[in-house]
Design a protein around this nucleic acid. Structure first.
Lengths: 211, 211
DNA sequence: ATAACAATGTGAAATAATTAACATTTTTCT
DNA sequence: AGAAAAATGTTAATTATTTCACATTGTTAT
């Protein structure tokens, strides 16, 4: 593991993930080289920031030619992916859970949804995009059996804290909470929370103030 | 409009929205006063940050008693809400679009979903949580008729740029893009992009590096 | 050949966000 | 009454992130 990896800023990690997706598209279109300002344009950021991010991961482009698309894709993969891949589960297979499961079906190789969970008897036992749906009571067993390390919470808000607790007890290492209700996890579990209502209120605020 | 409003940091705006939601729950449970450290606990941040945010909006609590829950809710509302309310539309009523529409149904008063759009003939003309679904070709007309100022894009990624362009031409003022594909908007339109895959990759990275 | 140009790479400055430190004040306890 | 405790409010320090400014170096044009 690179020494570099440890000290990458959070924001850089996010952008690297985005660069990679943009680069994959460029690669599919047959581009072999790309300039920092081209990447920047796609992501609505400055070319300097792109160059700095790339500098931070220790890659170096060719002067006047830019960056080799495929090499950069691979290097970003080396930094942000895990060698062996990571298994993920989705808890709550309502609209949001299905949307996420849908996004992932067959796309990533390094991150794969290994199980989904719900309480509804009508959902348990079914498959969603080829992924088995289990009852929430089976979370501890399935997480161990399938070596799941990350959980995505898409249950109704009021259930989120209880689900988080179950996941943590089952040994989950990272949580992504998409409910509007904050959850508590011990320090060793990496938690990311995102709340759509907050984002919308933020947009509304800036629409209002910048008329 | 407060002078204060103009200079609030983006991060503070996000947190204010979250404070308000937490405070509404506290109010519903009959709390009349709350301490900064209680708010901080709920949101996983430090009490200092809570106090600073509250300071920035010019509210002042009572020493040893904390903040008056109802007053704070109202003040946050004065800052982040618009007097008259803002109308929003959702473009793409797949799983994600439905999840968002669902979240909102009947909850907010100041932000309301005034229309949803899709291309599927089977969806156009139906209602989703009491909201009319129109064809995408009707976007310009409906946006004008219903005074819609913010658009939420939840179509498949490849369609996002085209939809963004349509919305911008129709006079939208703010956009929230939930597809993995970045879109371009003129400077006067406030754009916020959020991509679930990036978030998940970020969680995976930190799970990997902090073992 | 040489000048002009267009790209990368990066130290340093600027900006944004968080945290520390502490003065202040009310309440409670003895 | 006086001391201790517990809370807010705020300046200053720190840390994180972005941007500037420019040195460097291939490439192209004359």
């Amino acid at each position: 593991m690179h020494l570099l990896m440890k000290n990458l800023p959070h924001k850089t990690i996010e952008r690297l993930s985005q660069y990679r997706r943009a680069l994959l598209l460029c690669h599919a279109q047959g581009m072999t080289y790309i300039y920092s300002h081209e990447i920047a344009k796609i992501q609505h950021i400055t070319p300097v920031q792109v160059r700095r991010d790339i500098m931070l991961i220790g890659y170096t482009g060719t002067l006047r030619k830019g960056y080799n698309v495929m090499e950069l894709i691979e290097l970003i993969g080396n930094i942000i992916d895990s060698e062996e891949g990571i298994n993920v589960c989705v808890v709550g297979i309502g609209n949001l859970g299905r949307a996420i499961t849908n996004y992932f079906s067959g796309k990533r190789t390094k991150l794969s949804i290994a199980a989904v969970f719900d309480v509804e008897p009508s959902k348990v036992g079914k498959k969603y995009h080829l992924i088995d749906c289990f009852h929430i009571d089976d979370i501890p067993r399935i997480i161990k059996e399938r070596k799941i390390e990350i959980g995505i919470i898409t249950v109704p808000g009021e259930d989120a804290p209880a689900i988080a607790e179950i996941l943590v007890k089952a040994g989950i290492k990272g949580l992504l909470n998409y409910t509007p209700k904050p959850v508590n996890v011990p320090n060793k579990v990496y938690l990311e929370e995102y709340d759509m209502i907050t984002s919308l209120e933020k947009v509304a605020f800036f629409v209002k103030t910048h008329h």
